[in-house]
């Protein structure tokens, strides 16, 4: 189609896609690219001069939080992917009332925004919350000494609650594309259930498992609401919370941006993978002239 836009003998004029794309490009450049570059520039700036002091300060004050953030991310992305695979395998291989019901219900958390999830967890995981009460009633917890969950454990529960359904959606979607004949062929060749899972299902679906891992990983690094409302300023907390503190209480954009750059670095591998994957997909599906 693009060829018919420009007349061969006509005067040179701007092709229409320039006008179509201009607002979007301009908006993203001003509202995204500019602040993105600024986050690097400002992280190396102190009182208008080049300095690495922000990084030094960020590491000195927040090295525990940086480690904590990394551990939370690593643990939860692994957990969500692992449980995502297990549940998806279960859903793929079992057709029963139980699996059908769970398949209908598991998606709900995906649609609930993080701020509401945070509030739910806030009340659910509280020392006097419904979880502790329930565990107390069944005798698993002494209510005089309830579980303290506004920490790594509670944060992980919150992430798991919101993100496992997401990994299941992606991974189970991949499993559904695998035709039954592959499983039946393996079975007729004498493979046992666990061999079918390990040798057939998971390798055939490795790309969507990797996609789930990548998406969950980068999402956890960037999540502010859940740690902010569950842990807040207690130590250790995540760097997203620290950034908010730095900005809100001290108006210290230098250290905030240094921490921001740390969060970029933390996702650099997954970000590059994400970009490559999507750009490849976009090229494959590009229409022909």
């Amino acid at each position: 189609m693009s060829d018919s836009v420009i007349g061969r003998k006509g005067a040179v004029r701007l092709p229409s896609y320039v006008f179509l794309l201009f607002p979007a490009v301009a908006f993203i450049l001003i509202m995204y690219a500019y602040p993105f570059i600024l986050s690097f520039v400002k992280s190396f700036e102190l009182d208008g001069a080049f300095s690495t002091a922000n990084y030094k300060k960020a590491v000195d004050l927040y090295y525990k939080d940086i480690t904590f953030t990394f551990l939370v991310t690593l643990f939860n992305s692994t957990l969500a992917t692992l449980l995502g695979v297990l549940l998806s395998v279960y859903f793929r291989l079992n057709d029963s009332f139980i699996s059908r019901t769970l398949i209908k219900l598991y998606r709900i958390p995906i649609f609930i925004p993080f701020v509401v999830v945070a509030q739910m967890m806030n009340s659910f995981l509280a020392p006097h919350g419904i979880l502790n009460l329930f565990l107390g009633k069944v005798g698993l917890v002494n209510l005089d000494n309830p579980l303290q969950l506004f920490n790594f454990a509670g944060l992980s529960f919150g992430f798991a609650w919101k993100l496992i359904p997401f990994t299941v959606m992606i991974i189970f979607g991949g499993f559904q594309m695998i035709d039954n004949s592959y499983i039946e062929a393996a079975r007729s060749a004498g493979a046992k259930l666990h061999q079918i899972i390990i040798k057939i299902l998971i390798p055939m679906n490795s790309s969507s498992i990797l996609v789930a891992l990548v998406l969950v990983y980068s999402q956890i690094v960037g999540t502010f609401t859940l740690p902010y409302m569950l842990i807040g300023g207690k130590i250790p907390t995540t760097i997203t919370v620290d950034i908010a503190h730095r900005v809100n209480y001290y108006r210290d954009f230098g250290v905030a941006n240094a921490l921001g750059v740390f969060s970029y670095i933390m996702v650099i591998v997954t970000a590059v993978y994400y970009l490559k994957m999507n750009m490849r997909d976009a090229k494959i599906s590009h229409p022909q002239g």
């Binding site: 993203i28 995204y32 602040p35 921001g260 750059v261 750009m279």
Partner: peptide, 21 residues
């Protein structure tokens, strides 16, 4: 494509911080 994908690839909080300034 890269420009339009970047916002989803990296954490957005630092962007908001700089947008504030």
């Amino acid at each position: 494509l890269l420009l339009f994908l970047m916002p989803n690839a990296f954490p957005q909080q630092p962007i908001f911080v700089n947008l504030l300034s």
